[in-house]
Write a protein that binds this DNA or RNA. Structure first.
Lengths: 257, 257
DNA sequence: CTTGACCCTCACGCGGCGTGAGGCGGCACA
DNA sequence: TGTGCCGCCTCACGCCGCGTGAGGGTCAAG
């Protein structure tokens, strides 16, 4: 018969042709996936056309996302290729879905990050007036070491302008809770006033830090002892600072039972 | 200030809540990504709410496909989140494209596998007549050890029904090459006959095995010495087997110069 | 005979955990 | 007061698909 003059290729040449690395060829050899049919006397791997064909198949299947072990199965049992392809298609389709979900998730995250980017000091001034910065600095002085302050800082750091707007709105609503009770002639010990106080406490819990009824009393004291807080409240309604303090105390007593 | 009564959670509890494994928590602790703020006297990891929050962020970013190292950066530099998100979106989008390419690639592969599944013996009978099986078996007997036969087997194993149909069509065309020359009164040594022989040789090269002009002579001998081959050819045109043999010899002589 | 481009064989590294092994701690129930 | 059992701890190796050297041989050209 004829002596087939095969073209035998070394690793480097094969690597170039099939666009894989030499290390990859070594690896496939090691695990027995594609072993060169021949070796030169010096031990060089020599790949025949047949080896190349097999390798080409491996490369294709790899691109289709098959694991090397599976590829070995496929090459040795060509009859099961179709089944495998179906399964693979399903798996890849699932990954596709996951990733496209992922893209929309990232998009949503981006949207949030863009629309609601961290509130700037400007934003806060706009919402709460010029005094905000000073008040904040002083509060830091006075309460910076406390757990409550630190937790508050941690939480509010990530507040967006929208969040702060909500805080402002909630704050206004809480004030209305008190003024409504006042205007209706209810005493600070009335249920309406206590409910307003409780809403206030819960809002602090929600937005800033854990505020127990006991701690709420401390706040209440501050509203009457610190003239700036007093002024802020009394500007809304004369006597409101005192009213709020008493309501908070009444509520704290109620809550503790 | 108030004693915040934190709810401290052990690894197992955290794992359940955030749907990660305990090992994952250990890992994050090891690499310093999320370290529990506290430990019990016995060394149990105890996670605070703050730890949980951080962990929650990690879990989200992981789902978005970030590497742990990147996540550490993101958590420590929240201002760069948007940039990262953009980059990540681009990367994920690219993967999405790749994978959807992959799906269509698999689909094409599936289509091929379905439409062109390996030709069955039935198909071959249909194309080449009932004698095919016997002829094949005998050929195996006679030539099974030869390189040419083995290479032929290797190649034709993956031939589809469509391939075999093409082989049949090519074969018919080659026969016509010879009969046309015969009908035109050209001798087997004519250029037309030699060209037909050369086309025949090249077709074998293409479809079955390396067929040198020298080896082609062996085939030619077989066409006249084996009555079944003779019959096959002579059925097309009386004297064709001989004509073909001579044309092949003439062509082989021409090719060798 | 040298040079430089290849080739070889170890053998470790990476990312993100999985999966034991071997040994305490904590809590319920007897 | 034991006794189970579950959960926690700390090593430490394994996995996949190679990347990346180190340390040394081979081969063709000049």
């Amino acid at each position: 018969m004829t002596e087939r003059t095969q073209t035998l290729l070394t690793v480097g040449q094969v690597a170039d042709r099939l666009d894989v690395t030499v290390r990859t060829l070594h690896h496939y050899d090691e695990i027995g996936l594609v072993q060169p049919s021949e070796r030169s006397r010096a031990g060089y791997r020599l790949y025949t056309d047949g080896d190349l064909t097999r390798l080409q198949h491996v490369v294709v299947y790899r691109r289709l996302g098959f694991a090397l072990e599976e590829i070995a199965l496929l090459l040795d049992h060509p009859e099961s290729v179709e089944q495998h392809l179906r399964r693979q298609r399903a798996a890849v389709q699932q990954r596709l879905d996951e990733i496209s979900d992922l893209v929309t998730a990232i998009d949503r995250a981006l949207e949030r990050a863009m629309n609601d980017e961290q509130a700037t000091t400007e934003d806060l001034k706009e919402l709460f007036g010029d005094g905000f910065e000073d008040a904040h600095a002083e509060a830091e002085q006075r309460w910076g070491d406390s757990d409550a302050w630190q937790e508050s800082q941690r939480r509010t750091k990530s507040y967006t302008k929208a969040d702060w707007a909500a805080v402002k709105a909630e704050s206004d609503a809480l004030h209305r809770g008190f003024t409504d009770a006042m205007d209706a002639g209810e005493p600070p010990t009335s249920v309406a006033a206590m409910d307003a106080a409780e809403a206030h406490r819960r809002n602090i819990n929600e937005r800033f830090y854990d505020c127990s009824p006991q701690f709420h009393r401390n706040l209440a004291d501050m509203y009457t002892s610190d003239p700036r807080f007093t002024a802020t409240y009394d500007e809304i309604r004369p006597g409101m600072a005192l009213y709020v303090r008493d309501a908070i105390y009444a509520n704290a007593d109620r809550q503790e039972q």
